[in-house]
Nucleic acid binder design. Structure first.
Lengths: 216, 216
DNA sequence: ACACTTAAAGAACGGTCAGTTCTCTAATAC
DNA sequence: GTATTAGAGAACTGACCGTTCTTTAAGTGT
């Protein structure tokens, strides 16, 4: 019945007395711990137990907020987004794009790279979750390069229809592919090769399209 | 000692007596069981226990041959390669490439797609293993498209230098990117978009006007 | 100030799976 | 034949996941 009324001789070490965090404060501590774990051991080796103990909380507190590792990491990446550093603005499309790809490359060489791989693998299961990952993780590249293109259009370097074409994001798409296959950081020669022998010929002025291909 | 001195009251059911497979026969059975498991539950849910019991063998036999799940799956994919079906040969580069991308798309919609994702995620750890994956899994696309290009060069559709350029594999690179981000099968409109608005403008003869693409 | 409600800390548990290591014994080599 | 190799099967350690329980601090309402 009420077994241990009295005294609890046990529990020599029980710091439930310490200032107990709640709500947002605790949540922030958990997300911070998650990012630290990601930086130290990467996504694949991140465990809920480790995050909980690093944040000096309990797994129960984690599972009350997130349904699993992937959701937790996703939120950690979302709120404390990795530094973006503003748009490159060198005055010419070529150097702008090279600067962007270089930045993406170093970004992928950070723990973020392993997160990317891990989340990509987990997209197999849930389509809704897959959409979430796509939206939160894979939009940075395309959004940024479209902004660079927009300025190039205003300078007259690029024809406006390119913005709505699949050509627009080829540079970041190829960089992502390169990273996934060969790892990061992506060699600088490869970056300039992507830009000079593929991307610029596709988007720069005199580049002709086959038929009227402004769709998507 | 008499072989079956009546000991061991235990072991009511012990079929170690059945024809015990060895060497290559057993290995084939294991690889077959691996492929069946892959087809049924996908890469993420594949476990060594299940493979062992499906092959009616023991985990010890698996670990004597492979150091883990990834190596096993890699070998299973390598030996009993998924059907290639020969090179598309339609007489024109455009239709050849579209046929190739379609085939790759359906391939990625098979269990092979989940294998791809899983292996990609495991490349984080070991660089040697990463190379192995790249070589065994991601060569099919590029190798095939180079063969298509080679024939296009012989027909005069494409200039020879393209074969050694990064442009050569852009179609398969973009398809892989599309699959990883959006899943398979890849919509047919996207495939033709990749080919018509990106790939062909990059590789076809000089300045491919929509009407007369000069072959002389 | 008080009782009441919420939720954090911590521990334990059941379950799954990875890898390892036993024993026993069939298949093979010598 | 005898000796060696290696497969079958089971047990076992250890990691991790996700859940649940108890105890108790932090808020909430009156």
């Amino acid at each position: 019945m009420p077994p241990n009324v009295g005294r609890a001789v046990e529990s020599a070490v029980d710091h439930r007395k310490g200032p107990r965090r709640r709500g947002e404060e605790l949540e922030n501590a958990i997300l911070t711990a998650t990012l630290e774990e990601l930086a130290e051991v990467g996504y694949a080796a991140l465990t809920m137990d480790r995050v909980a103990s690093r944040a000096r909380t309990s797994k129960a507190a984690l599972y009350r907020r997130w349904s699993g590792r992937a959701e937790l990491v996703l939120d950690a990446c979302k709120l404390r987004a990795f530094p973006d550093g503003g748009l490159p603005d060198t005055g010419a499309l070529r150097t702008d794009v090279i600067a962007l790809l270089r930045r993406m490359s170093t970004h992928m060489a950070s723990p973020f790279g392993s997160i990317l791989r891990g989340l990509l693998a987990e997209m197999t299961s849930d389509p809704d979750f897959a959409r979430l990952i796509r939206d939160r993780v894979h939009t940075a590249g395309p959004v940024t390069i479209r902004a660079l293109l927009q300025r190039a259009v205003e300078r007259g370097e690029v024809e406006p229809w390119i913005l709505g074409s699949r050509r627009a994001t080829v540079a970041t798409d190829l960089l992502r592919n390169e990273f996934l296959l060969f790892g990061a950081p992506v060699d600088d020669g490869i970056i300039t090769d992507i830009v000079d022998s593929v991307y610029l010929p596709l988007v720069l002025r005199p580049a002709p399209g086959p038929t009227g291909d402004a769709e998507h």
